[in-house]
Design a protein around this nucleic acid. Structure first.
Length: 854
RNA sequence: GCCGAAGUGGCGGAAUGGUAGACGCGAGAGACUUAAAAUCUCUUUCUCGCAAGGGAGUGUGGGUUCGAGUCCCUCCUUCGGCACCA
C-alpha cells in the first residue's frame, strides 16, 4: 500500500535532521585544503520586514541546486549567507515608531532565516554575516582607513544631490530622472563637504577587466556605458578680443569643425574662466541676468528646457582655427560643465541641439557633409519607396526642419572636400589639426568619484574625528561604534549629532591619541573642541566587500586570512538581480582592485561567472505589488503544497534569466508530479523497460544543471516518470534493482531535497552501506551504451519537406547507400519522385534524408 | 535618440542549421461516482477532408542553404538601461 505524500511532515523531519547533522557546514573544513572549490554567491538580501518573496526563492533555489549538485559530484562547495542589514527602511520605520533599527533588523533577519531554512537552502550558516554587526563594520571602517591612508578617500566640497524627503545626500547613481531613487522626491543641489572614494583611479582597469569574466554581454555593456569612455579631440579656439585666452572645445565629431558657426560655453565654465570681465557694456546686463537665472534653475525647469534652448550672446568672438573665421561665443545651460571641456563648437547643420539653438538665435547654418551612398540609404525604410523618402527628407532639410546626417562626402572644408566623413576624411582632419598644433586627443569618462557620505543613522560610522581647527583625523581603534542614544527625527543634520555619548567618546579618543598635537597647538587637553564625523557610509560600501568576509567571517585580526581567501576566492558563480548591474558590481570590482594593489588579494576580478535571475511577475503579467493585489506569498504555497513544490515549480517556470509570470494552476501540476514520484518510489517497482530512459534522463539532468537549464532538467524527469508509469501497466514483472531506483532519487535531490531524502531512506538497502543523506551521496553516472536507442526513425524529405520516415538500426546509421536506397524504395517516396529527375541526395547520419527532385 | 535583450499554439515554454511546438497548464471528450472533487484514458497549432492525405505556420520583408525558429540584412513591436554626453 503506497503511503500518502505528507509534504509538511517530510519537510519538517528533514530540515531538522540536516540541521542536527550539520550537513552543509564548510567551516568544519577550516584547516583542510580544498581540491576542487566552488564558491557560490547570491547578492545578500536586505532583511525587509515583509519577509521572503517568490523572487528571493527563485534565485536562492537556483544556487542551492548548483550547491547540492556540485557537492554530490565531490566538489568542495562554499555557499555562505548574510544580510545587507544597514539601510533606510529600518531607519524610516524608527522615525515613525521609535523602534530602534537594530531591533527591527534583528526581527527581520530571524524571519528570513526561518524561511530560508524552510525552503531548504543548504547554506553554510556558520559563516553568516550582517553588515550592521560591529564585528563586520569594524572591517568596513578598516577599509575606509586603508583608502584614506593611500589617498583614495578624500573630502571635497561641492554640489551634491540632496533629497529633501530623506534628508540625505545621494550618489549620482541614486538619482533617477532628477528624483530620489528611493522615495521619488525631487532632488535638489546643495553645497556640502563630503567624503569621496577615488574609483576613477581604476577607470581603465574597470573596462579592461571585463575581458576576464564570464558575464552576460548586456551587463558588461552597461558597465561600459556607465564608465562612458569616449575618445575625442580637444580643439583650441582663441578669443579674438584677447588672443592669449584659449577656449578649448571637446568633440567626437571633429570632421564637422568647418561647419562651426558659433561656440557655446557652460555657465559654470564661463564663471570659472572669469570671462565676464571681457564682456562689453552692451552685453553686460543680459549676460549677468542669464547667469543669475541659470544658477537658480531647478531640475524641473532644466528638464522643460530640454526642448526650448536658452542662452545669451556674450558679444565676444572666438576664432575657428581651421579657417580663421570669427564666430560668436554664447553661454547656454544645455552645455554641461562636467562633459568634455564644458565648451562646445556649434555645428547646427549636423547636430540637433546646435540646430535648435541656431534656429532660436538666428545663427547661420553651414552644411559640411553631403550624405551619400549606403549610409544614407540606411535611413530609408523598406516599407516606403526609397526615392520618395529621399526626396521628402531632402525637402525637409532644405526647409530647415531637420539636420543633415553626418555620413557622407565632406564639403566646404578646404582640402578635405570629397573625402569620407566617417573614413579617410575624419582621420586626415584629425592628423592635420594636431600637426597644426591647435588640437590634441582627449579621452573622457562619465564615471565620477564615489560620494559615500550619508546624513543618516543606520549605517557604518565614518571613522574620522575633527580637531578644533576642523582637520580630520582617522580613528584607528576599530570598531568605531554606532551610538545608540540618538534622536531619529530628521533635522537636516545627521541624527548622530544628537548623541551625547558619541561626542564624549570623541573627546576621550582625542585626549587619548592626540595629546602631543593638543599641547603643540595649545588646545584643551581633555578633547574639548573636537567632534566626530556625523555622517555614515553609503550602504554600498558595506556590500562591496562582503564576499571577502564570508570566507573567514569570525576573524578578529584581519578582514579575512590569506589562507582562507586563497582557498575559496574568487567567487566562481554569482547570481544577482539585474538591478545591481551597475553600482554594486562597479564598487565591488573597485574594492577588489584596490585591496589587490595593497597586497591583500591576488586576483583582479571578484566574480568570475555571473548570471541574473529574471523577475517573477504576478499572474496578471504585472510586477507584483501589494497595491495591485497580485502578490504570491511563498508561505502560503509552502503550507498548501510544500517547499519542494515551490522550488520545483519556480525552476520549472522557464529559463532562470527570463521574466516569468506566476501560474497558480501550474503549481498544482508540479505538486501532482512530486506526488506521483512519491507513489512510484514507495511502490518500489521500476520495470526493466525504462532502463534506457533512465540513463538518458541521468545524462540530460547532469548536462542541464551546470548550464542552469533547470526547466528542461525537470521536464526530462517528468518524461521519465511518465514512461515509468506507462511501463508498469504493460511490461512484465522484471524489475530494476535498488541502484536504479536510487539513481532517480539522486537526480531529484537538488530540486526537491526534502522529498528526495525521504525517498532515499525509504528505499535504502540495508545490506549495502549508503550515505547518511542523499545529499552526501554520489551523483549517478549514466552509461552511454545503455542510453542508446536500438533504432532511430529517420525522416525522409522530398525537396526539404518531410514526407515519410524509415526505421534504421542504430548500428547501421552509417550505411549511407543502404539508407538512401531504402528511403527511395518506400511507396510514398516513389509517389513523390515519380516522373521527376533526382538532382541531389543528402543524408545526414542518424538525422535526415533529403531527396531533391526536379 | 543611443546601447542591450526578446518576439514560437489558448497560456508558461522546448528545439548542436535537420520531423517546430518536448514538458507543464488550460480546454474538450470519456471512465469511475448518486453527484461533485480527486484520479485515470484519449484529443488538443491553424486549415481543407468521412478518411487516406494535402496546404499554411516561429513579429515583417528579403537573403544564404538540399534544408532556417536557429545564420545574414531590413523594418516593426515589447521590455531593460542610458540620455541636452557635444
Amino acid at each position: 500500500m503506497a503511503s500518502v505524500y505528507d509534504h509538511t511532515k517530510i519537510e519538517k523531519k528533514w530540515q531538522q535532521a540536516w540541521e542536527e547533522a550539520k550537513l552543509f557546514l564548510q567551516t568544519e573544513k577550516q584547516g583542510e585544503t580544498v581540491k576542487d572549490k566552488m564558491y557560490l554567491l547570491f547578492a545578500f538580501a536586505y532583511p525587509s520586514g515583509s519577509g521572503l518573496h517568490v523572487g528571493h526563492v527563485e534565485s536562492k533555489t537556483a544556487l542551492d541546486i548548483l550547491a547540492r549538485y556540485y557537492r554530490m559530484q565531490g566538489k568542495d562547495v562554499f555557499f555562505p549567507v548574510g544580510w545587507d542589514a544597514f539601510g533606510l527602511p529600518a531607519e524610516n520605520y524608527a522615525i515613525k515608531t521609535g523602534v530602534p533599527p537594530v531591533e527591527t533588523t534583528k526581527n527581520a533577519i530571524n524571519t528570513f532565516r526561518r524561511q530560508l531554512k524552510q525552503i531548504g537552502i543548504s547554506y553554510d550558516w556558520a559563516n553568516e554575516i550582517a553588515t550592521c554587526h560591529p564585528g563586520y563594520y569594524k572591517w568596513t571602517q578598516w577599509i575606509f582607513a586603508e583608502l584614506y591612508k593611500k589617498g583614495f578617500a578624500y573630502q571635497a566640497e561641492g554640489k551634491v544631490n540632496w533629497c529633501p524627503q530623506d534628508q540625505t545626500v545621494l550618489a549620482n547613481e541614486q538619482v533617477v530622472n532628477g528624483t530620489c531613487e528611493r522615495c521619488g522626491a525631487e532632488v535638489v543641489q546643495k553645497d556640502l563637504k563630503q567624503w569621496y572614494f577615488k574609483i576613477t583611479e581604476y577607470k581603465d582597469e574597470l573596462i579592461s577587466g571585463l575581458d576576464q569574466v564570464d558575464w552576460p554581454v548586456a551587463t558588461k555593456q552597461q558597465q561600459l556605458n556607465w564608465i562612458g569612455k569616449a575618445k575625442g579631440l580637444n580643439i583650441d579656439f582663441k578669443l579674438s578680443e584677447k588672443t592669449e585666452i584659449t577656449l578649448t572645445v571637446w568633440t567626437k565629431f571633429w570632421e564637422t569643425v568647418f561647419g562651426t558657426t558659433f561656440v557655446v560655453i557652460a555657465p559654470e565654465k564661463f564663471l570659472e574662466m572669469k570671462l565676464g570681465e571681457l564682456v562689453d557694456s552692451q552685453h553686460q546686463a543680459a549676460v549677468n541676468d542669464y547667469l543669475d537665472k541659470a544658477f537658480k534653475k531647478t531640475e524641473e525647469e532644466r528638464k522643460i528646457g530640454e526642448k526650448d534652448k536658452t542662452g545669451v550672446d556674450t558679444g565676444l568672438k572666438v576664432i575657428n582655427p581651421v579657417n580663421g573665421q570669427a564666430v560668436p561665443l554664447y553661454i547656454a545651460d544645455y552645455v554641461l560643465m562636467n562633459v568634455g571641456t564644458g565648451t562646445v563648437m556649434g555645428v547646427p547643420a549636423h547636430d540637433e541641439r546646435d540646430f535648435a539653438f541656431a534656429k532660436k538665435f538666428g545663427l547661420p547654418i553651414q552644411q559640411v557633409i553631403v550624405p551619400s551612398g549606403l549610409s544614407f540609404e540606411s535611413l530609408v525604410s523598406t516599407q516606403r519607396d526609397p526615392a520618395d523618402f529621399r526626396s521628402q527628407f531632402l525637402a525637409q532639410v532644405k526647409e530647415g526642419m531637420t539636420v543633415w546626417p553626418w555620413e557622407g562626402k565632406i564639403v566646404n572644408s578646404g582640402q578635405f572636400d570629397n573625402m569620407e566623413s566617417r573614413g579617410d576624411g575624419k582621420q586626415a582632419m584629425a592628423e592635420w589639426m594636431i600637426e597644426q598644433g591647435y588640437a590634441q586627443w582627449n579621452v573622457t569618462y562619465k564615471l565620477r568619484d564615489w560620494l559615500i557620505s550619508r546624513q543618516r543613522y543606520w549605517g557604518a560610522p565614518i571613522p574620522v574625528i575633527y580637531d578644533p581647527e576642523g582637520q580630520p583625523h582617522l580613528v584607528e581603534e576599530l570598531p568605531w561604534e554606532l551610538p545608540t542614544d540618538v534622536d531619529f527625527k530628521p533635522t537636516g543634520e545627521s541624527p548622530l549629532t544628537s548623541s551625547v555619548e558619541f561626542q564624549q567618546r570623541t573627546e576621550a579618543y582625542a585626549a587619548k591619541h592626540f595629546q602631543r598635537l593638543m599641547i603643540e597647538k595649545g588646545w584643551d587637553q581633555n578633547g574639548k573642541g573636537w567632534r566626530p564625523e556625523y555622517d555614515t557610509m553609503d550602504t554600498f560600501v558595506d556590500s562591496s566587500w562582503y564576499f571577502l568576509r564570508y570566507v573567514d567571517a569570525r576573524n578578529e585580526r584581519e578582514f579575512a586570512s590569506k589562507e582562507q581567501m586563497q582557498k575559496w576566492l574568487p567567487v566562481d558563480f554569482y547570481m544577482i538581480g539585474p538591478e545591481h548591474i551597475v553600482l554594486h558590481l562597479l564598487y565591488s570590482r573597485f574594492f577588489t582592485k584596490f585591496l589587490r594593489d595593497q597586497g591583500y588579494l591576488n586576483f583582479d576580478e571578484p566574480f568570475m561567472k555571473m548570471r541574473h535571475q529574471g523577475m517573477i511577475l504576478g499572474p496578471d503579467g504585472r510586477k507584483m505589488s501589494k497595491s495591485k493585489g497580485n502578490v504570491i506569498n511563498p508561505d502560503e504555497v509552502i503550507e498548501k503544497f510544500g517547499a519542494d513544490t515551490l522550488r520545483v515549480y519556480e525552476m520549472f517556470m522557464g529559463p532562470i534569466e527570463a521574466d516569468k509570470l506566476w501560474d497558480v494552476s501550474a503549481v498544482a501540476g508540479v505538486y501532482r508530479f512530486l506526488r506521483r514520484v512519491h507513489a512510484l518510489v514507495s511502490a518500489g517497482v521500476m520495470p526493466v523497460g525504462v532502463q534506457r530512459k533512465l540513463h538518458q534522463t541521468i545524462r540530460k539532468v547532469t548536462q542541464d544543471i551546470p548550464e542552469l537549464k533547470f526547466n528542461t532538467a525537470i521536464a526530462a524527469m517528468m518524461e521519465f516518470v511518465n514512461e515509468w508509469e506507462a511501463a508498469l501497466k504493460t511490461s512484465s514483472a522484471d524489475k530494476l534493482g535498488h541502484e536504479e531506483l536510487t539513481s532517480f532519487i539522486k537526480l531529484l535531490a537538488p530540486f526537491a531535497p526534502f522529498l528526495a531524502d525521504e525517498l532515499y531512506h525509504q528505499v535504502a538497502d540495508s545490506s549495502k552501506s549508503s550515505a547518511s543523506s542523499v545529499h552526501l551521496s554520489e551523483w549517478p553516472q549514466w552509461n552511454e551504451e545503455l542510453a542508446q536507442e536500438e533504432a532511430v526513425m529517420i525522416p525522409i524529405q522530398i525537396n526539404g519537406k518531410v514526407r515519410t520516415q524509415i526505421e534504421v538500426k542504430t548500428d547501421s546509421v552509417g550505411d549511407k547507400n543502404a539508407i538512401l536506397a531504402e528511403a527511395k524504395s518506400t511507396q510514398i517516396v516513389q509517389k513523390w519522385i515519380e516522373g521527376k529527375e533526382i538532382v541531389k541526395e543528402i543524408y545526414v547520419p542518424g538525422k535526415i534524408v533529403n531527396v531533391v527532385v526536379k
